[in-house]
């Protein structure tokens, strides 16, 4: 059987040993989200210092795609600025794992891949609204999160 375009070594490895798996007590940002159709369910925890993301963790259950994408997302945003992360695009995440093709080939599985990014965008949105009072930046984020899939 030919090499699988989705289930690469990297995805399997990440799904078996996810990065930043765990929980942060009293985090600055916490967001739970799930895909009812396939049962992916994650909690994303983020701590920030000023504008910088200092700590990220996640826990929950999901398929290999969801686990791998969430792992990579947490790796990518750690140490980054909220501003940078705010502008993070779905391609930035998908291309990291060679999953860009999912957008076209699998409208179902794309949800597994983007669940964590959606949770992150909503999480930062709430953070902007509640803690920073930046409603304008927040509105755009919410729109973006809602339109991810």
């Amino acid at each position: 059987m030919s090499a699988d375009p989705i289930y690469t070594e990297m995805i399997i490895e990440y799904s078996r040993n996810p990065s930043n798996f765990g929980k942060i007590e009293n985090p600055h940002i916490h967001r739970h989200d799930s895909n009812p159709l396939c049962g992916d369910s994650i909690d994303l925890y983020v701590n920030v210092d000023g504008n910088k993301i200092t700590e990220v963790k996640f826990d929950g259950k999901g398929c290999a795609i969801c686990m791998a994408c969430t792992s990579v997302l947490t790796e990518m945003i750690k140490g980054k600025n909220l501003e940078e992360v705010k502008n993070f695009k779905k391609d930035d995440l998908l291309s990291e794992l060679g999953l860009g093709h999912l957008i076209k080939t699998s409208p179902v599985r794309i949800k597994c891949a983007l669940l964590s990014l959606k949770a992150l965008k909503y999480g930062i949105y709430s953070y902007f609204v509640d803690k920073m009072n930046d409603v304008e930046a927040a509105g755009k984020l919410k729109e973006e999160a809602a339109s991810l899939y």
Partner: peptide, 22 residues
């Protein structure tokens, strides 16, 4: 410990339609 949707996606690549879910 393999999620059923991963199983269904892999077998679907071979044209095999099974159901995964609740």
């Amino acid at each position: 410990d393999v999620h059923p949707h991963d199983v269904a996606t892999i077998v679907d690549k071979n044209g095999v339609a099974i159901r995964s879910g609740h």
